[in-house]
């Protein structure tokens, strides 16, 4: 099972993402943002957290226009799997692969702590390792995680069971407490919390493991 992790100037969770994917059994290549083409035969592209291009203009906006993101969009349009975490989620909304936008936290503060998340659906390769309704503890670390979608988009996400995770208690003003959403083909997941920071006992928790194991298990057997 082949995965790539995109690296932008200012990415800082790229290596954690690589470790988490490798731990779950993936063969991982790091891909620099100036590469216009992704390696052939990829099953998964991961867009990591960090502060790509210093968050200039808007979080993820410049990264979304970088050469590698053309390849990312093509990969997704071919039905490839994409995981975007934190800044990666922001990049995915800026490319239009996921609907909505991520705005400054309602309380204006950077939030860095472990929060309880509810797994809203298990019907995706990313969440099939959990049961719907499970509460898992995953770290968040963001300033702009306040998910916004207009009423029609929100109704569509809810109606199509595309909300993957919600915050158990509101932390950042996100509409419907949304922490992560799926694309309409359920193969693109964007989430603000960091599952790659919860895959080792040394992290203080391993609730993120099931995401990587479930995803890679399913892609490896596909």
């Amino acid at each position: 099972m082949k995965a790539a992790v995109l690296v932008f100037p200012g990415s800082n969770c790229d290596r954690d993402m690589k470790v988490a994917l490798e731990q779950a059994g993936a063969d991982v290549t790091m891909v620099w943002h100036k590469d216009a083409e992704l390696p052939k035969g990829l099953d998964l592209v991961a867009v990591p957290g960090g502060f790509s291009f210093g968050d200039y203009l808007r979080c993820g906006a410049i990264a979304a226009q970088s050469p590698v993101c053309k390849g990312l969009v093509e990969h997704a349009n071919r039905g490839g799997y994409v995981l975007g975490v934190c800044n990666g989620f922001q990049v995915l909304t800026e490319t239009g692969l996921l609907p909505g936008a991520l705005m400054r936290n309602a309380g204006l503060k950077f939030i860095s702590r472990v929060v309880p998340l509810r797994v809203t659906t298990s019907a995706s390769a990313f969440t099939e390792g959990y049961n719907a309704g499970d509460v898992i503890n995953i770290p968040v670390a963001h300033h702009d995680g306040n998910y916004y979608a207009d009423a029609d988009t929100l109704a569509r996400l809810q109606g199509e069971d595309r909300i993957a995770f919600t915050y158990e208690t509101p932390i950042n003003g996100a509409v419907a407490d949304i922490a992560g959403i799926l694309s309409d083909n359920r193969r693109v997941l964007g989430m603000m919390p960091h599952p790659e920071r919860a895959v080792d006992e040394g992290h203080g928790g391993t609730d993120g493991q099931a995401l990587f194991r479930g995803l890679i298990g399913q892609l490896a057997s596909a």
Partner: peptide, 9 residues
């Protein structure tokens, strides 16, 4: 449309 504004918000 392409960069300077995010017309979602």
């Amino acid at each position: 449309e392409k960069l300077l504004a995010n017309t979602v918000i």
